Simulated assay, not measured.
Amino acid sequence: MNQRPRRASDDVSFGIKVAALWSVCLLAIIAFLVAMVWLLNSISLVTITVAIAVMITALLQPAVAWLDRRGLPHAVAAVLVYVVGIALLGLALWFVISQIAKSQTNIGQQLTASLTTIRDWLVNGPIHMSSKEADKYTIHLGQTIGQYKNQIASGAWESANTAIGIVSGAVFTLFAVLFVLLDNGKMFGWFVRFFPDDTEGHVWAGGAAAWRTLTAYMRSLVLLAAVNAIAMVPVMMIAGLPLVVPLAVLLFIGSLVPMIGVLVAGAVVVMIALVTKGITTAIVVAIMLVLIVQLFGNLLNPVILGKAVDIHPFAILVGVTGGTLLAGIFGAFVAVPFIAVVHNAIRAMREFNAGKIDPLIEGHVPAEVAEHPPPVPHGQEHRLSDPGPA
């Protein structure tokens, strides 16, 4: 009996072969992600405007759906919500920008004074740090942050640093929001048709879960940010802090970036309390801020989100940090919803494949799509025999 000639690969263990295959697959995935990041960054103006438009749409779409369920024609509901929503968002944006512009100099002076106060405490307090070391941790750190703050904040905004870029991006965003609100899911149906027939059901399930996640996240994000800022107003007023309204606006903006954003905004509030009212008031303000953020986060998040956005805090921290490194403030803002959307979409596709969910039965696709239901995995056709309410 002839034996097959021995090959060098025969001496490689099965575990090494599996590890090598996984390594090649992971390298291919990493290369794809790097290429996608490079591509999106090269057209960052389009990337930013589309992302913002989708998030604004997710914030407004529940109101359109509410009007739809009450018999109002979809086009009328979409236009009505669009006009009212954009007007309110524009008013809020104007208020935020005006408050920041008026108080930017005062806040900067207060922060500089607080760094000096902290430096003196490090030198003369119980720590007895040397002047050189204290300067490194306070004055020099403040100068470094001030020197590089524009670079830290720019990130993917670099392509929108001209008036033409900002105006064109704003106009594009407004038209995109109106178009998506009027579209009512038809565009996603067109996108699904690019996939093979036996995978369309998976894409529908993943897309429905992704949209539910983004809608819940945006609603929770704005509501919790507003609650955090408003709840701190009486605390800051009782403490006698200056710049109460600008600091509340800063807390609102900081709360839009999970963990890191509210931490930075809260640090600014505490430092201003330190330099204006002393260390005791600063400690009380810090404690109240932590209690308010934790209290409302733990009370409201389960009610607003349910299980729509269930991400471990460590994953949030890693995502926000990675997003900041890749795309500055914008990357930090979109990192968490991106992780949540991808996580829930993958989970929904797995559940669909296992026959646990059906996007039609759960009413997660538009009515016109229900007329042409997506195919389901082989052997699970019985799940669409009773589609239920579309």
Rank of each mutant, 00 (worst) to 15 (best):
L251F: 13
V79E: 01
H372V: 00
I164G: 03
V285A: 11
L250T: 09
V180A: 05
V244G: 09
I316W: 02
L274V: 02
D386S: 06
L256K: 06
L291I: 12
P377I: 12
D310E: 06
V365H: 14
A205C: 08
M36P: 01
L39V: 13
S23T: 05
A51Y: 08
V309Y: 07
V84E: 00
D10I: 06
A273K: 08
V290Y: 04
F188L: 09
V376L: 07
P337E: 03
A267G: 15
I292Y: 05
L21S: 06
K136T: 10
Y82M: 02
V96C: 11
A8F: 14
S42K: 13
L325V: 01
R219N: 07
I339T: 12
G146A: 09
V249C: 13
F194R: 13
F296S: 00
I164R: 11
V270F: 08
Q151A: 15
A370I: 04
G155S: 10
P242K: 15
I48H: 08
E200R: 13
I311E: 00
V318M: 06
A248L: 01
Q147V: 00
T215I: 08
N41H: 15
R347E: 03
P374F: 12
A153T: 02
A335E: 04
V203L: 10
V24Y: 13
W38N: 05
P73N: 15
L45I: 10
F172G: 11
L384T: 07
L111P: 00
F179G: 09
M232S: 15
A231R: 05
L221D: 00
G323L: 07
H378S: 08
F32A: 12
V365L: 12
Q151G: 14
I361T: 10
G297M: 01
L91P: 02
V180K: 11
A286H: 12
G306P: 13
L295H: 03
L263W: 14
V84T: 00
V192Q: 04
A134H: 06
R69A: 15
G85A: 06
G323E: 04
G355E: 03
K136V: 07
M129I: 04
L291T: 06
G278C: 14
I30C: 04
G306W: 11
L360N: 01
R69H: 15
H128C: 00
I145G: 09
I272M: 05
D68K: 15
H343I: 01
G254D: 03
T47S: 14
P62N: 13
N353T: 08
N353F: 03
